[in-house]
């Protein structure tokens, strides 16, 4: 699925709900930007992926992380905290994407240096819009640090 010119973008999706993961994939795949999507289903896997541990030894460094907060094994908040306290990882923008509209979650996320916080809309069209906007923002609008 590689495209010419553009270096493919690696997106890590940390999502235990396969439905959501699928939806995100559906939306991203429908876009122009070449994306390499990586899906992990819990916090531990996510950290292993980022630290290239265990089965993820050959994994790429993601350009963007979609992080759900409620995850099995390791909570999304812990994952966020670990990323943002890790000097190697903290540059990676993390989009907290969750069902929760709870204020404390939003606050907590930002205080853990989440780059943005998005509530998953119920409506499919809105969902598509949200994901598209994120994609556009982070890959077209924003200048990201180059990978190592």
């Amino acid at each position: 699925m590689q495209k010419q010119k553009m270096k493919p973008v690696d997106i890590l999706i940390v999502e235990d709900n396969p439905g959501d993961a699928r939806l995100i994939k559906e939306v991203i795949n429908g876009n122009k930007i070449q994306c390499q999507l990586h899906l992990v289903k819990d916090g531990v896997e996510a950290m292993n992926f980022l630290n290239r541990k265990e089965e993820f030894t050959g994994s790429p460094r993601p350009d963007l992380i979609f992080l759900d907060l409620n995850l099995p094994k390791k909570d999304g908040r812990e994952v966020l905290a670990e990323i943002k306290t890790d000097d190697n990882l903290k540059q990676i923008p993390v989009v907290v994407m969750t069902t929760s509209q709870a204020e404390e979650d939003i606050l907590k996320s930002y205080s853990l240096h989440a780059n943005c916080y998005v509530t998953k809309p119920l409506d499919l069209d809105q969902f598509v819009n949200v994901v598209k906007s994120i994609e556009d923002f982070w890959f077209s609008l924003v200048k990201l640090p180059t990978k190592e």
């Binding site: 709900n17 439905g19 409620n70 969750t98 069902t99 709870a102 119920l122 069209d125």
Partner: peptide
């Protein structure tokens, strides 16, 4: 609220 909404969203999103 969180866990109830997820399956709900699944229903909604995928039917849509």
């Amino acid at each position: 609220s969180h866990d109830l909404q997820e399956p709900l969203r699944m229903v909604s999103s995928f039917t849509q």
